[in-house]
Write a protein that binds this DNA or RNA. Structure first.
Lengths: 196, 196
DNA sequence: CGTCTATTTGAATGTACTCAAAAGCGGTGG
DNA sequence: CCACCGCTTTTGAGTACATTCAAATAGACG
C-alpha cells in the first residue's frame, strides 16, 4: 500500500504544509517496490531521481578506477538518497545505489523536483535544511577520516549508528570506513584488549 | 572601502534580486578588515557568524583530542565559510577559522541569516544551492580520501586547486590531505619517479 | 543439501607515521 | 640593509598501521 505518512512526517519536521500542499507534493512522487540486490541507480547512466526510503535498506557506493569500492551512505527508513552532484547538474551518475534488502521507496524525478520548488517555495526551505544537514554530516565524517585511526572510526561508527551496524555486513562497514574487511576483522578481534 | 560588488555578483549567480532587495541584503552585512593570523572563530566559543571572503585568504580547521589538526577548507575570494553544523544548531564551534593573510570579509550573523530567509524566500533558494554544492563537494572529497593513496590525493589537489596550492604552505596542504608534512615532502621529492 | 559469499586467520609487504636533526626561508628589529 | 629568530621543509632511520594474498571456516540463500 502506498503510505504517505512516513514521507509527510519527514517533510513536516522542517516545514508546515496545508492539506492541499501535501496532496500536491504526493502527486509528484512515484512509489516503487524493489527487491534485494536491485540497482536503482547505475554508474554511467543519467541520474534523474531523488529517492526516499519508506522501508527496507539501500546503500550508495562508488567504484574507483582501481576497483576499490567506497560506501557513501547506508539509507534506511526516512532517508533521502541520490548521487546529489549528478542529480543537480544533470550528469551521468558516478555512484550506484543498490537495495540491500526488499525495500519500498518514493522517487522524485529531477523534473518534478524543479516543479516542486517552483510551485511551492516552502520546499526550497525544506531542501535547504536537508542539504545543510547533509553538508554538516559529511564534514564531520571527513574530520574523523582525517584525524582518527581505523579502530576509533569503527567504534565511533557502531556507537553513532548502532542500528545500521546491525543491519549491514562487515564488508560493507569496512568499505564505509575505508579499510579492508580483513583488517576490520582484526579490529573486532582486538576489541577486548587491555581488559584482563 | 566597502565593496558589495563581489558578494552581489556571488548571489546573482543563483538568484536575481531587485535593487531594493540587494540593498536590503547588504544592510544585514557587517564589513570587517582582519590581519594575518587573526582567529575570526575560536573553538569552544559560540558560532554565530557566516563569513564571506572579499579579499585575502582564510582557513578553517579542527583540532582533534590527540592534537592532530585537520584543515576543513581554504577560503579565498568569493567563498562562504563557517562551522556550518554549529552555526545552524546554535552550538559552540568545534572548528577554528584563521586569516592566513590580511583579509576583508563580510559577516552575516545567525540572527540576520534568519531575518534574511524570512524576509525574502529567494535566499532560501540561494542557500539551498550553496549547501547542495557544498554537500556534493564534501562527498567527492570523502570518496577520494577513502579510495586513493596520499600521493594521488595530492596530485588531484594541485590539479583541482592550482591557485590554492600556490597560496598555502605544504604543512597546511598536508593537514588538508590528512597526512604529515614530512610525508608530503617525500611525495613531492618522488614526483619525477619513473621518468629517466 | 550444495553453492556462493562473508568472515577469520596468518605471513609477508607496503604505506604512512614518529622522532630527530639539518637546511631553508621569511619576517622583524636593530 | 643585514642578522637573527622562528617556523617550514627536507632527510633519514626505525616503527606502526593497514594491505595483499592465500587458505580455512562459517553462514546465508536458493
Amino acid at each position: 500500500m502506498m503510505d504517505f505518512d512516513t514521507i509527510l512526517h519527514n517533510i513536516h519536521r522542517h516545514i508546515e504544509l496545508t492539506q492541499a500542499e501535501s496532496h500536491q507534493f504526493c502527486n509528484l512522487l512515484n512509489y516503487k517496490k524493489i527487491t534485494r540486490k536491485t540497482l536503482i541507480q547505475e554508474a554511467g547512466s543519467p541520474c534523474r531521481i531523488l529517492n526516499f526510503v519508506i522501508s527496507g535498506g539501500l546503500r550508495s557506493y562508488c567504484q574507483n578506477p582501481n576497483g576499490k569500492e567506497a560506501t557513501i551512505m547506508f539509507c534506511f527508513k526516512d532517508w533521502w538518497v541520490t548521487d546529489m552532484y549528478c542529480f543537480i547538474n544533470r550528469q551521468t551518475a558516478m555512484m550506484e545505489i543498490e537495495a540491500m534488502e526488499d525495500s519500498e521507496i518514493f522517487q522524485l524525478s529531477r523534473d518534478n523536483f524543479d516543479r516542486l520548488l517552483e510551485m511551492n517555495p516552502k520546499f526550497e526551505r525544506f531542501f535547504r535544511i536537508l542539504m545543510q544537514n547533509a553538508y554538516s554530516r559529511e564534514q564531520l565524517r571527513i574530520i574523523e577520516n582525517l584525524t582518527l585511526p581505523a579502530e576509533e572510526r569503527y567504534f565511533n561508527f557502531i556507537e553513532k549508528y548502532p542500528f545500521i551496524a546491525n543491519q549491514v555486513t562487515q564488508k560493507q562497514i569496512a568499505s564505509y570506513l575505508g579499510i579492508t574487511p580483513e583488517f576490520l576483522s582484526v579490529i573486532r578481534k582486538n576489541k577486548g584488549r587491555g581488559i584482563s
